[in-house]
Write a protein that binds this DNA or RNA. Sequence first.
RNA 1: GGAGAGGUGGCUGAGCGGUUUAAAGCGACGGUUUGCUAAACCGUUGUAGGGCUAAUACCCCUACCGGGGGUUCGAAUCCCCCCCUCUCCGCCA
Length: 434
Amino acid sequence: MLDIRLVREKTDEVKRLLAQRRAGDEKKIDELLELDAERRRLLGEVEQLKALRNRVSKEIGLLMKEKRLEEAEDKKSQTRETGKKISEIDAQVAGIEDRRNDLLLNIPNTPHSSVPDGADESDNVTVREWGEKPVFEFEPKIHIDLCESLGLVDFARGAKLAGSGFPLYTGAGARLERALIQFMLDIHTSEHGYHEVQPPFMVNRDCMTGVGQFPKFVDQAYVVQEGEDTETFGKLCMIPTAEAPVANIHRDEILSENELPKYYCAYSPCFRAEAGAAGVGTRGLIRTHQFDKVELIKLVPPENSYDELESMVANAETILQRLGLHYRILHLCTGDMGFASAKTYDIEVWAPGQGQYLEVSSCSNCEDYQARRMNIRYKTGSGEKVLPHILNGSGTALARLFVALIESYQRSDGSVGVPQVLQSYMKTDLIGVS
RNA sequence: GGAGAGGUGGCUGAGCGGUUUAAAGCGACGGUUUGCUAAACCGUUGUAGGGCUAAUACCCCUACCGGGGGUUCGAAUCCCCCCCUCUCCGCCA
C-alpha cells in the first residue's frame, strides 16, 4: 500500500500518478485524507483520556494501600465515566481505521517515472526482440492438434476430472512439462544465484493481502474450506502464483542489511478462477485454471531495485534463449500494469501455430508497496529501518511456453524436436507419435 | 480428532490484579582503563501510532508480554474464543 505520510504530504503528486493508471483511484485520495485527519483528531482526544485514566488508576492503587477506601471509591466512580468515553471513542477510531485501511488496500501502486503513459495494452512499448520467427515449409499446426496427435495433453479427460481449463498432461507431454520445470530451476539456482524454495500451494488471507491479491481480486482466487465445515471457509486459498507464499516468507520480520539482496525461485502450480476474463473457455493451453510456473522473487535495497529488475528480466530471457524461442519484451504502460507494480516488463514468446505472441513472463518492481503491506523491513548499518523493494517475475510460466515450444519445434511429419538443452531431461531428442 | 505442557524484549528467564516506567543474566553498541588482546568498570539498548518540530533530532503521550474479545478504576497477571510449538495416543500418504 501507499505510504499514508506520502499521501498527506504530496497529495497532488500521488493523485497525478494514480490518474495515469486510468482506473479512477485518485478519487479515493480525498476520502482517505478525510478519514486520516478524523482518525488523528480522535486519537488525540482518546489518548489524553487514557493518560488521565492511567494517572488516576495509579492514585487509586496508592489510596487503597493507605486504606483510604472512600476516597478510592470516589475516584473509581469518576474514572468509570472516563472509561466509557474511552471505549466509545476507541470504537469510533476502530471504525475509521477499518474504512481507511480498506481504502488504502484498494489503492494501487504509483507508476515509476520511466513507465510510458498509456491507457491499455495497445500503448505498451516493445523494448527489444530476440531471435526470429521460425520459417516452415509446411503449414504449422496449432498446439491443440499437436497435443492430440502426439498424445501430450488429454484436454477432454482433464475436463472430465476437474472441468475445462484443467489440462491432463500425458506421456511425453507430462515429461516435457517436468523437464521444463527442472531445466528452469536448475539454471536459476546454479547460474543466477536464486535460492530454491518449495512453498505451500495454499496460503492464508494475510499472504494474499500482502502481495495485493486481496481484497480487490478475491474473485480470481479459488478459496477453499475443510470438508463440510463452513467455519473454515476462506481461511486458505489456492495460490494464483508462487509470489503469494514466497514474497511473504519474511512477513513481519526485520532483516539485517547484509542478508540482502535475497533471491528466491520456486516452482508451483498456479490456480486462477479467471472469472470474467476474456478467452476463458477457449480450448487449449493458452488460458487455463491451473498451470505450472517457476517464479523469481527478489528482496533488495531501494537504491538498486531498478537494476535488479533489469537483471531479473535477463534471467527470464536466458530460459527462452537457451530454448531457442523467439520473443519480445514489452514495457507495460501505466494503464496496463498490475495492481502492486511500479514498473513491469512482459516477455512474450512467439507461437507459430497460434500465429501470436504469448505472455510467458511478467517482471515487476513493486518497490515498497508490498513490503509495507507485509511489514518487511531491514536494518541498515546505521540502525535505520528501511522497507526493501520487492520484485517478482515469472521465470517462466509453463503452458504457454509449452505451446510455443512444440509449435516452434514441430516438423513436417508431425513430430516435435526436443531442444538440445532439454534432451538430457527428456532422454530423447524427438517427440514422435507413440 | 483425544490427553497434557507451553508461547514474556535479539536470546535465556522472573513476574501471576496496583513502587513493573516488564526484574535479572547473556548478547550487541558506546566509553574508561590497557603496549596489544582479554578482563573489569560505567553507560546505552524494542516496535508502532499520535503530539511538538525544518527534522525520519530531542521531548511528551498512547498502545504492544502469541492473536482477538471480556471482567476491572487499573490486566503480562483473572475469564472466554482462536492460532502456534512440544510430548503422548488415534487416524492417515
